[in-house]
């Protein structure tokens, strides 16, 4: 996983609540067996005027000029500013894969859906929750000034605006540690291999029916 300590980037506003995972990456692109290459189809329905399908040359597709990511002032964006309950719906990790592949490293919103929250951090994307009023104010600032950039500091848990205002945000300690260091969860968990084996042994004794190999022995 890519680490993230500090990030400065251009902000793009997606003014919409309850952005669901079907909207982030539609199902026809979930047929890939790879983790990469989803960026061109991020927000596919909003971005293009036609229906997309896997394996297409997207450069030939008609762009929706009204969609924020198609506007010239937001080219090169890496911070998405959006509304509450971002990422609701399915557990598809293709959603953060698409955001990451497009170039987003940070998403700012009043709230995020639970499964998406987990998936994003596992792919090096920092989710920054800020209250509704602050998000509203940031929307106004972004729209008012072209080239609006934010400075995100994960270590300090702050977002700094161009005017120098410093906003603090919450992030849980474990996810922060992993993201700062680009750590692989599985490697970390396997450091506890002995504890897992010990638990498993006791669990098997207390609930033998949860282990099918026990049932075969019993029957």
């Amino acid at each position: 996983m890519q680490s993230l300590t500090q990030h400065q980037g251009l902000v793009a506003p997606l003014d919409r609540a309850n952005v669901d995972t079907d909207l982030i990456i539609p199902k026809q692109f979930l047929k890939s067996i790879k983790r990469t290459g989803f960026g061109p189809n991020l927000f596919d329905v909003l971005r293009y005027l036609d229906e997309g399908y896997p394996g297409q040359d997207v450069s030939q597709r008609p762009l929706n000029p009204d969609f924020v990511l198609n506007q010239s002032r937001y080219q090169g964006t890496s911070i998405l500013l959006t509304r509450r309950n971002f990422g609701c719906g399915s557990s598809r990790e293709h959603a953060p894969w698409a955001l990451e592949d497009f170039g987003f490293r940070v998403v700012i919103a009043p709230s995020f859906a639970d499964i998406f929250y987990n998936n994003a951090f596992k792919n090096g994307i920092l989710l920054v929750p800020l209250d509704e009023d602050t998000v509203e104010r940031l929307f106004q600032e972004v729209e008012a000034s072209e080239g609006y950039r934010l400075d995100v500091d994960l270590e300090a848990q702050t977002v700094t605006t161009p005017s120098g205002e410093v906003l603090s945000f919450d992030v849980d300690g474990f996810r922060k540690h992993c993201l700062l260091n680009g750590l692989d969860d599985i490697g970390l968990t396997l450091q506890d291999e002995e504890a897992i084996r010990e638990f498993e042994q006791k669990h098997r004794q207390a609930h033998p029916w949860l282990f099918r190999d026990n049932q075969r022995e019993a029957s």
């Binding site: 983790r35 557990s91 990790e93 499964i115 987990n118 596992k122 968990t189």
Partner: peptide
């Protein structure tokens, strides 16, 4: 790896959807 895993909670099982990184994590650990 499917959000509708919540279904299985009808049996008093602690059931929930996970992402693909977690699918790999569960397989491995």
């Amino acid at each position: 790896g499917d959000s509708h895993t919540a279904t299985h909670g009808a049996f008093a099982a602690l059931a929930h959807g996970i992402g693909t990184s977690e699918v790999e994590h569960v397989l491995a650990t």
